[in-house]
Design a protein around this nucleic acid. Structure first.
Lengths: 114, 114
DNA sequence: TAACATACTATCTAAAAAGGAAGTAATAAT
DNA sequence: ATTATTACTTCCTTTTTAGATAGTATGTTA
């Protein structure tokens, strides 16, 4: 797991760890679910396998997700939140709440735009 | 203010709006404070004026911060959170809480690394 | 023997984000 | 006339991030 850089402010730390393009979405899907690579791919089709692998590796490297490889053929790999990853749930949740409201009001706004 | 894209998941919306390198930090400093450009610069010295301006303009464009220009010489510009920006406080706050814990435990970790 | 499944990896290109250094505008004070 | 102040803007370069496409490994099944 990476050691912390010094941040000028605590919120920076979060952006640093989960600010990647697909990271929050990946984490979102892993709350309450252990998923295989191709299940994640189906849930997040806009991410290419390369991107998905890359983001997952970074999350793993940062100790946020667990990656469990089964030595079988065809391959089987399971991703889940680590203990540390679980600690991010409140953050993800407050983001979700805000996002839901935002999407709601953005919808209204589009309707009210003439 | 930008209209919402469609997001595959609500948390994405947040990252989209405040995922920029210095945005959360800027917002953090603007909670409870109206600040002038050079005050922000002093608080966030790692951001060049160009970056600071850019991020502030995006935040303004997204309706998150207010920018008030006084037509005086030398110039005076004040930045503050808008109503919409205020709605992000719970998110910023959960990030802060997590960040504080993270920094704490990262410190411990560094100590325990032999 | 060939095709299939799964989880990637590799390579190359393109686009986006960030960094650095210098410059501008307007007026007031010296 | 020169300098100072403040909030930028411009231009150019470098770095980072992302995308597209194709390929690999390995047993299992048809």
């Amino acid at each position: 797991m990476r050691t912390a850089k010094s941040f000028s402010c605590p919120v920076e730390a979060v952006v640093n760890l989960i600010g990647g393009k697909y990271k929050t979405v990946i984490l979102w899907h892993l709350i309450n679910n252990t998923l295989r690579f191709n299940q994640l791919q189906k849930q997040i089709p806009q991410a290419t396998p390369k991107m998905l692998t890359q983001q997952l590796r970074e999350l793993e490297h940062d100790g946020i997700v667990n990656r469990k490889v089964y030595p079988v053929v065809p391959p089987k790999t399971e991703y889940s939140l680590s203990q540390f990853g679980l600690s991010l749930i409140p953050v993800l949740d407050s983001m979700r709440k805000w996002g839901v409201e935002y999407i709601k009001s953005a919808g209204k706004q589009i309707l009210s735009e003439k």
